[in-house]
């Protein structure tokens, strides 16, 4: 998933979903997962598993397609051929990731049209971090390197999950992410070691993006029987805190070595525990932005809606070609 935290919400309906399951089938299903085997679309699965997976994969897909916007902002302004080509390819990949993820979710029985509909009507969520603006070229470089780095931490964890189509999509995605990460790092290195003006741009971007970056992985998970079962089913592969710690461990030293300052005085690695300590992120702000009150929520959805509307005549026309042919869920 592209950012964590808000996916798994236990509710009483979820518990009900679980109550009616055939205990024998459930036991076989759990045994398969315990053996490390993947679940495939045609296999029996608990309703709750299906529901949570659709929700998770769908949100991941939405994050990719919305994530194409803040970076896409800089496509027409990227400085020089190398950057121009790379950024076009990078944003294209993110659209491609959405396509792959929607495909994986479709195997579970929700159509892509419905998912897109739920995105543009505000019914389903996407990663919060894309509700922040990219003021300068350096902001887009921060995203390419560090937001993608955060996403990779998440995605590598999820790639070890239990649902076959999702894992296969993630394998492909992670291979492409390594280009994003290297490209982003390359850009940041050039700015941070460049002219005073470039350094300043980069430092300002770090200042702006650090708080959203800490929010990216979501608040500490509340351990409940609900998350326990999702962990057992290998839907949830790592806690938000684990992901955040892993990210800090891998990337804070790399940011520091470029002479950049991270705007948190309390950020340090505790040598005894090996854990990173930091100022508790402002979770009120996080909630506010998730609930629609971020700097770019309105714009992101409006743009997505506009893209859908402007393309509607194309899809309508082409759909007339396959009248009478029935849509079925893809196979794998």
């Amino acid at each position: 998933m592209y950012g964590g935290g808000q996916v798994f919400e236990p509710s009483s309906t979820n518990n009900d979903l679980l109550k009616d399951e055939d205990p024998k089938k459930l036991a076989e299903f759990e045994a398969r997962i315990a053996r490390g085997e993947k679940i495939e679309p045609k296999d029996w699965m608990p309703k709750l598993y299906r529901k949570q997976l659709i929700r998770m994969i769908e949100q991941h897909g939405h994050s990719e397609i919305i994530g194409a916007l803040p970076e896409g902002t800089w496509i027409t302004r990227a400085p020089g051929f190398k950057r121009k080509l790379a950024l076009m390819a990078k944003v294209q990949d993110e659209v491609g990731h959405a396509q792959l993820l929607y495909g994986a979710a479709e195997t579970l029985g929700k159509s892509r049209e419905q998912m897109i509909q739920d995105l543009i009507t505000g019914k389903s969520k996407y990663s919060n971090i894309f509700n922040y603006p990219t003021f300068t070229w350096a902001d887009s470089c921060f995203i390419s390197w560090l937001v993608d780095a955060g996403a990779i931490v998440n995605q590598l964890a999820n790639a070890r999950g239990s649902y076959g189509p999702y894992c296969r999509a993630l394998d492909r995605i992670c291979a492409e992410e390594s280009f994003h990460l290297k490209y982003g790092h390359h850009c940041v290195i050039h700015l941070a070691t460049g002219t005073p003006k470039q350094r300043e741009m980069m430092q300002e971007a770090v200042n702006r993006w650090w708080a959203p970056m800490m929010h990216f992985f979501g608040p500490s998970d509340k351990i409940s029987t609900h998350t326990e079962i999702l962990t057992k089913w290998k839907v949830k592969m790592a806690t938000n805190d684990e992901c955040r710690q892993q990210f800090l461990d891998m990337y804070v030293p790399k940011i520091w070595e470029l002479g950049l300052t991270i705007p948190d005085e309390n950020l340090k690695r505790n040598e005894q525990t090996g854990e990173w300590e930091f100022t508790e992120p402002d979770w009120e702000e996080f909630k506010r932005v998730i609930n629609g009150d971020g700097p770019c929520n309105k714009e992101r959805l409006a743009v997505r809606r506009t893209a859908e509307e402007r393309g509607a005549w194309v899809r309508r026309a082409l759909a007339s070609k396959t009248k009478g042919e029935e849509y079925v869920a893809p196979m794998a």
Partner: peptide, 13 residues
Amino acid sequence: EWTGMGPLLEEDI
């Protein structure tokens, strides 16, 4: 300029 805003995902790509 169409990247990320195409009429359908596959065509966008």
